[in-house]
Design a protein around this nucleic acid. Structure first.
Lengths: 131, 131
DNA sequence: ATTGATAATAGTAATTATTACTAATAAGGA
DNA sequence: TCCTTATTAGTAATAATTACTATTATCAAT
């Protein structure tokens, strides 16, 4: 696998800040550095980086895939109110379920869904107004 | 919400056996009963059933969404070898991560990734042949 | 540094999953 | 049975992703 500037910038886009971006968002961010980079190139490099374990994917709503440049073990919380994705510390189980005996478990991903602190507050305030 | 045959058959398709189907697979199965049902109708009813909590979704690979007609608490194992989805008993954590204090957690989903028993065996056998 | 094989790219077209739209149909209360 | 209107079939539109191809750039060997 060759070392290209495009590949570098795709990875840099995901690691420059603690964020979870869609392919299109990565594309927009990388275009600030390489104005004529192709969306296909972004997709291919994202795929390669996932395969090589340098980035993760987060599947959130039923919509599209998010990419996460930070691969230390952690879980995610997806807010059903505002759509934001939060990192949370890993609460992975110590023991695997018994059905997985004989299976080779390579990864465990947990996603929590609900309302973040802000959305809880926002909805509470609305309720109080109505009363 | 009206009770239509289309809605019934969509649900029946998911509950007739312990399976995880894509929208298209549900469509194919329901067409055996209602030959001219529209794919749009399948999507709409799947969406409604998810909203009313009668079915679940499973987000597995980066591909498309799977639907699960059995909503008792359980987790999933996705085989990276053959793509099969297995049900496993729920190993959800008793305590939520501390970052979720003040959040309203409505759901917790865990997906394990790896190789199922069959694929482990298949790959082992291939290794032994080579040696 | 120069060359050469070829992996990666930009640009575009194609594919696939999903949603939107609309006239016709059917569910279910009156 | 009638009437309101949610639901449907059929089709078109959208959005995310992948495929294709001529050109470019990487990197190992010279």
């Amino acid at each position: 696998m060759r070392n290209t500037r495009q590949r570098e910038e795709v990875l840099a886009a995901l690691r420059s800040e603690r964020s979870h971006l869609t392919a299109t968002q990565v594309y927009d961010k990388v275009r600030e550095k390489i104005s004529n980079i192709s969306l296909g190139t972004v997709y291919r490099n994202l795929g390669n980086l996932v395969q090589s374990g340098e980035i993760f994917t987060v599947e959130t709503s039923d919509k599209c895939l998010f990419y996460d440049g930070f691969t230390f073990p952690h879980s995610h919380f997806v807010c059903n109110g505002c759509g934001a994705i939060f990192d949370v510390s890993n609460a992975n189980s110590v023991e695997y379920p018994p059905e997985l005996n004989g299976f080779s478990v390579e990864e465990e991903r947990t996603v929590y869904y609900g309302l973040c602190k802000n959305c809880v507050k926002r909805i509470d305030e609305r309720k109080n107004k109505k009363q």
